[in-house]
Simulated scan of single mutants.
Amino acid sequence: MSQYPMTAKGAEMLREELNELKSVTRPKIIEAIAEAREHGDLKENAEYHAAREQQSFCEGRIQDIEGKLSNAQIIDVTKMENTGKVIFGVTVTILNVETEEETTYKIVGDDEADIKNNLISVNSPIARGLIGKELDDVVNIQTPAGTVEFEIIEVEYI
């Protein structure tokens, strides 16, 4: 299996979700199945089938999270020296050379990506274009709107 890069915060969020699924959601589903069984005929028991479907989804998610955590390569950039180089886990501020618009992104793993919170996946076109570059570099990144020129104006290891 390949390793999944993940920030320390992302790994913690997955552990919390796993704990919630195992200690809260799973027992509720088991209780719902038991309650639905008491209603009799299982063939035409919609509550039973819905609870079983929910159980299947929950167990699948538990397996998914456990697999990701077991193959996670947790990278904590706060413990690294800031060399000004863009690597996984950094917070980078870029300037669109044409529009003078500044944007700040944190480069994270696929599971942590949330564009609304400026968390971009390491596999996104912008992150791939920035990885390995350094402070003050100018990079051309292919976007759906065409090639855009950005200048890296800040790299933070936070």
Rank of each mutant, 00 (worst) to 15 (best):
115 I>F: 11
64 D>C: 07
63 Q>T: 12
81 E>T: 11
61 R>H: 08
90 V>F: 03
102 E>V: 10
117 N>A: 10
110 D>N: 14
91 T>R: 07
59 E>I: 15
64 D>S: 14
103 T>Y: 10
105 Y>N: 00
54 Q>C: 05
110 D>G: 05
77 V>S: 02
66 E>S: 05
76 D>Y: 03
77 V>E: 03
86 V>L: 05
103 T>Q: 13
47 E>Q: 12
78 T>A: 07
49 H>A: 14
91 T>H: 04
98 E>I: 04
79 K>C: 03
73 Q>K: 12
39 H>W: 14
90 V>A: 04
51 A>C: 05
99 T>I: 01
96 N>I: 05
72 A>C: 01
118 N>V: 03
56 S>N: 14
68 K>E: 00
80 M>V: 01
112 E>G: 08
89 G>M: 10
46 A>E: 15
67 G>C: 03
98 E>C: 06
41 D>E: 12
89 G>T: 09
106 K>S: 02
39 H>A: 13
105 Y>L: 09
85 K>F: 08
56 S>K: 11
109 G>P: 09
42 L>I: 15
44 E>Y: 13
90 V>W: 01
70 S>R: 10
103 T>M: 15
69 L>K: 02
52 R>V: 15
60 G>C: 05
40 G>S: 08
51 A>R: 03
44 E>T: 13
68 K>R: 03
63 Q>G: 15
69 L>G: 11
103 T>P: 07
110 D>I: 12
100 E>Q: 14
62 I>L: 03
110 D>H: 05
74 I>V: 11
107 I>L: 09
91 T>L: 04
88 F>H: 00
97 V>G: 08
88 F>E: 09
67 G>L: 06
39 H>T: 09
97 V>Q: 08
89 G>S: 06
81 E>F: 02
103 T>L: 10
83 T>E: 11
65 I>D: 06
40 G>K: 10
112 E>H: 00
62 I>A: 09
78 T>M: 02
90 V>M: 05
62 I>D: 00
64 D>R: 14
72 A>I: 01
77 V>G: 03
50 A>L: 13
108 V>S: 06
109 G>D: 09
60 G>S: 15
55 Q>S: 08
64 D>G: 10
86 V>M: 08
98 E>Y: 04
